[in-house]
């Protein structure tokens, strides 16, 4: 474990917390006759969270962490896996099933088909993998799918244009997590013998590049001190 890896995991954890915080805020409106100002804003417009992306992440973690009961790496590793599995499935549950949270989800804007991402990733994992076993192919599939799972979210952001603050932070934290993982790989490559993982690196690099455009607008909105807006 190095500082980049730990920082990467922590930003990933923070992104999940930001999303849960957002859901909690929306949820807390449930019993009130007058929603709080933040809830009111969230309910007025859509939450800007893509259910498609969240469902893809749930699938990513479900297929990647199949080893949770068979291989023990560390207590840290197991706990983090449980957090990511639990949070991703509960987020999906809230957006689909919770009365209030569901209302803030803009279904008509979030039209990306899972199928277009899942199928090519599955085929690619069957062709390009390190070992042709059930667990290994699904693990590789999870890497490919994670690389592109953010696409429905980025498309939704571009469509809605007016980006809610928490949603912007969420996407930024996810991008930061990927960038830190690249630094982690560079560090490990020079400090650990035989540390070469082409599949992980290339899919991780592709994933990070997808955030480049978002990062550009995120940082210029910070620099100019204006609300984040993506061009049409």
């Amino acid at each position: 474990m190095n500082i980049f890896r730990l920082a990467g995991d922590m930003t990933h954890l923070m992104s999940v917390l930001v999303l849960l915080l957002k859901i909690h805020t929306i949820k807390s409106c449930a019993g009130k006759s007058y929603p709080c100002s933040l809830c009111f804003i969230l309910l007025e417009s859509s939450s800007g969270i893509s259910l498609k992306t969240q469902e893809l992440y749930a699938l990513v973690f479900a297929t990647r962490y199949l080893d949770i009961f068979t291989d023990f790496i560390s207590v840290y590793n197991t706990i983090m896996k449980l957090i990511f599995l639990g949070s991703s499935f509960s987020i999906v549950w809230y957006i689909r099933r919770h009365k209030i949270v569901r209302r803030s989800y803009d279904k008509d804007q979030d039209t990306f088909r899972h199928f277009f991402l899942v199928l090519p990733c599955l085929l690619l994992a069957l062709i390009i993998n390190e070992k042709f076993t059930f667990k290994e192919v699904l693990w590789t599939f999870s890497l490919y799918l994670e690389a592109v799972a953010i696409l429905p979210q980025l498309i939704l952001l571009q469509r809605t244009r007016n980006i809610d603050n928490l949603t912007g932070q969420y996407v930024f934290l996810l991008g930061a997590y990927r960038a830190l993982y690249i630094l982690n790989w560079i560090y490990r490559y020079f400090t650990e013998p035989h540390y070469v993982h082409w599949i992980t690196w290339i899919s991780g690099l592709v994933q990070t590049l997808l955030y480049a455009d978002f990062f550009y607008y995120y940082f210029s909105s910070l620099k100019n001190n204006v609300k984040l807006k993506l061009p049409a």
Partner: peptide, 10 residues
């Protein structure tokens, strides 16, 4: 190819 840390990353 996985001499160092078999899937030890999240």
């Amino acid at each position: 190819a996985k001499d160092s840390g078999e899937h030890d990353e999240l």
